[in-house]
Amino acid sequence: MQAALTVRGLAKSFGRKVVEGLDFTIYPGEFYALLGPNGAGKTTTLRMIAGLMRPDAGSIAVYGRDVLADPLGAKAIMAWIPDEPLLYDRLSPLEYLAFVAGLWGVAPEQAQPRAEALLDTLGLWPHRNERCEGFSRGMKQKTVLAGALIHEPKFLLLDEPLTGLDAASARLVKDLLRQYVQGGAAIILTTHILEVAERLADRIGILSGGRLLAEGDLSTLRERSGVSGSLEDVFLHLTAA
């Protein structure tokens, strides 16, 4: 089975080493959570995978496409959602989706119904013609999520995607992401809300000081850490060591 993401020997430093010798693999239909304390290198890793930052060493392949050698090919099947919503305040959600669909080369006859369906699902349909400048952070985050999904990427990179969402919206987004994975796509997510990772992720990687400390499902992590409690207990034990 071809991996959705293959990371080998990834390294990056900004004066000090931020990511060091990182190896991991994600498979289609898998929800992978990358956890770690502040400054562990999670966002840097995601930015390198998204093609926004060149690693000092190592390789990244998305569905076999080398992100460094064929960035456009890899980007065509990926979507990245950062912790701060990347949005044009003076565009409406519908205009934003039209723009993103155009960037990813989605034909208008496919993009239009998809945009309408996504806006409807995410509760943004009544606001489709309002400029985003008046939106709450949660509404902006949902607009960005709709943008990420409009080109039906096979691989999603999510950096703290639930920040700013109320409980109902967070549930909606979690259900949407879960469905997306069940449809065969792969997702990598970073979050500080460990319950989210525990509930959504098929496998969890714990990063600290730029290195992968442990990886696996919750029971594997419990075995590895020797802690039988919640993911929080396991995480705190592993990162404190």
Partner: peptide
């Protein structure tokens, strides 16, 4: 809040250049 509504509307473009130009 600015509350500017009604005047906006998305038009889906065929190419990335057209999408960027129109944005």
């Amino acid at each position: 809040p600015p509350g500017r509504t009604g005047a906006q509307g998305g038009r889906f473009a065929n190419t990335a250049f057209a999408a960027l130009f129109s944005k």
